[in-house]
């Protein structure tokens, strides 16, 4: 087994990185993949609560790096799927507790044990970001259809370019079809035109995301919600499947009937 390391990052905070990591991980694990998620946000850990695993933490990422436990001991297994694991961030330390080379070493050890390593990068372009991309084989840049998120995504894409990290794929999160329709939100096409990178996912805005994080059960466990489906589709695209994009901006039956768009 040689895992691929995929880092989810964004520049701007609050665009949905942690939700995406949790859901894409669930998507990949439900395709039979062995997945390890790493929370790269040392000091502000959250992936554990989004996945509903917060009560089972004994050791964390910093414990592994500093040799207080073996890698295996810090891997919390999610019992809802056969092969889904989390390595949580430390809550009491800061980003300087881990270096980019620590992350490369850790991922090299982990690569033999799984198919995918998903790293949840913190917001920003400093140490935590550098740590999170150090071992990446591919990077998912998340953005929202909103000026500051797009600008920060562009900055991050530029930095990844300069570091020759890639391939880089774009995930556009929180599209509100009704706002796009009335011309008050950047469309998928607008964002793609501005950022000019490969698109791997379009996720509609969905209140269920909050319900899911309230419960600690990522949406992707249940296939019914639109956002959950969108994350499953990203997982399938990561597996190399050619999954057509759902036209989230024109979803209603009547809208489809009367609009000229496909």
């Amino acid at each position: 087994m040689t895992a691929k390391v995929a880092t989810v990052t964004s520049g701007k905070g609050g665009v949905g990185k942690t939700t995406a990591v949790a859901n894409i991980a669930v998507g990949l694990a439900s395709l039979g993949q062995r997945v390890v998620c790493i929370d790269g946000d040392i000091g502000l850990r959250n992936l554990d609560v989004v996945l509903g695993l917060e009560n089972r933490i004994v050791y964390d990422l910093v414990d592994v790096v500093e040799g207080r436990c073996r890698l295996r001991q810090a891997m919390i297994r999610d019992k809802r799927l056969p092969e889904l694991y989390l390595i949580p961030a430390s809550q009491t330390r800061d980003k300087s507790a881990v270096s980019p080379s620590d992350m490369v070493r850790l991922c090299d050890d982990l690569r033999q044990e799984c198919d995918w390593i998903l790293i949840d990068s913190p917001a920003g372009i400093e140490r935590g970001f550098r740590n999170s991309i150090a071992a990446a084989n591919l990077v998912l840049v998340m953005t929202n259809p909103e000026v500051s998120a797009v600008r920060d995504a562009d900055r991050v894409i530029g930095l990844l370019d300069a570091e020759e990290k890639g391939p880089v794929h774009l995930v556009i999160n929180r599209i509100k079809p009704s706002m796009v329709k009335r011309g008050d939100m950047l469309s998928v096409e607008d964002v793609l035109d501005l950022l000019a990178i490969h698109l791997i996912g379009i996720v509609p805005d969905d209140e269920n995301v909050i319900v899911a994080s309230n419960r600690g059960t990522p949406l992707a466990f249940d296939n019914k919600s639109k956002a959950g489906m969108a994350f499953h589709n990203i997982a399938r695209r990561l597996m190399g499947e050619d999954v057509p994009f759902v036209d989230v901006e024109n979803q209603g039956f009547l809208q489809r009937l009367f609009s000229g768009r496909k």
């Binding site: 909103e146 797009v150 600008r151 562009d154 530029g158 008050d184 950047l186 469309s187 607008d190 501005l194």
Partner: peptide
């Protein structure tokens, strides 16, 4: 407003 956003971003991104 989406048109405003796009135009403004086009300029900002060029300079960034």
């Amino acid at each position: 407003s989406a048109g405003n956003a796009k135009e403004r971003l086009q300029l900002v991104l060029i300079h960034d």
